[in-house]
Structures are given as C-alpha cells and as structure tokens.
Design a protein around this nucleic acid. Structure first.
Length: 128
DNA sequence: GCAATGACGCTCT
DNA sequence: CAGAGCGCCATTG
C-alpha cells in the first residue's frame, strides 16, 4: 500500500498547509507546494486538492493560482460561492473576480527560494 | 510499465 | 495583467 500511503501522506501535507493559511489571506499553489514539501510542483497541489475529501474542512478556496483567482474544476457555481466566503473573511475581489495577491497572499514571495530558472530559449535572460 | 491528463508556475512578449 | 510557450511531477487508464 505504498501508493495509498504516499498519496494520503502527500495530501495530508496539503491540507495541513491550507489549514495554516490565516483568515482573510490566500496562498498560491506554488506557495502551498513549497510549504507542503512539493516545492515547485504546484500542479500536484491542485491535484491533491481536487481529491480533497469533503470530510475535511479544507478551505481550498484560500488556495488560488498565481493570478489570484479561484480555480473552478467543474462547477462554476461554486466559484461564486467561495468568492462570497472569501469576501466574508475580508478578502476583496476586483471586478474580474480576482484577488489582490499583493496584499492577501499569506506570506511574502519566496523569491530567494527560487532554485532555478527555465531554459533560456531566447538567450535574453540578462535583461531583468 | 507506458501514455495521457491535470483545481499550475515561471518567464518572455 | 493577459497571452503564449515550456516544464515538473503525480495520479489514473
């Protein structure tokens, strides 16, 4: 049962991290991934959350993508629902339904933790 | 064991 | 900020 154990263990980390997110705050998948030990693998975070059992009181709504918007996996209705919940917590959305990550992200960007950069296809990496 | 998919991120334009 | 392209890894078929 290695598979099941590993899966649950990984998911448990996601839930723990999400549960550590303070109210009126949101975290990006990348941030949660890092805190969860999946540093750099935001996809798996979303995957884990997708399998999140409703038994747990996981506020996956606090977990948003880098754009600051809630990810609707199938039901767009819940998107508006969670939006209301976040607003109730004190999170403000813009007209586009996006959150100002600049103020609501739980922690400052872990830019220092950035391990590496993507392969320079253009070779113009020295601009920024 | 391989192939396809996925609640995304990062960088450049 | 938005759009386009590429990449990483895990889970499922």
């Amino acid at each position: 049962m290695k598979t099941a154990s590993n899966r649950s263990d990984s998911y448990a980390r996601i839930y723990a991290v999400v549960g550590e997110i303070p109210r009126a705050k949101v975290a990006t998948y990348g941030q949660v991934a890092e805190l969860a030990g999946l540093a750099g693998h935001a996809r798996q975070v979303g995957y884990a959350l997708a399998a999140t059992p409703d038994d747990l009181d996981i506020a996956w709504q606090r977990v948003v993508n880098a754009k600051g918007e809630i990810s609707a996996r199938v039901d767009p209705l819940m998107e508006g629902l969670q939006r209301s919940l976040l607003e109730a917590e004190g999170v403000v959305f813009d007209a586009n339904g996006r959150i100002d990550l600049a103020r609501y992200r739980g922690q400052p960007r872990l830019q220092s933790l950035r391990p590496k950069r993507r392969a320079p296809s253009k070779g113009k990496e020295g601009k920024r």
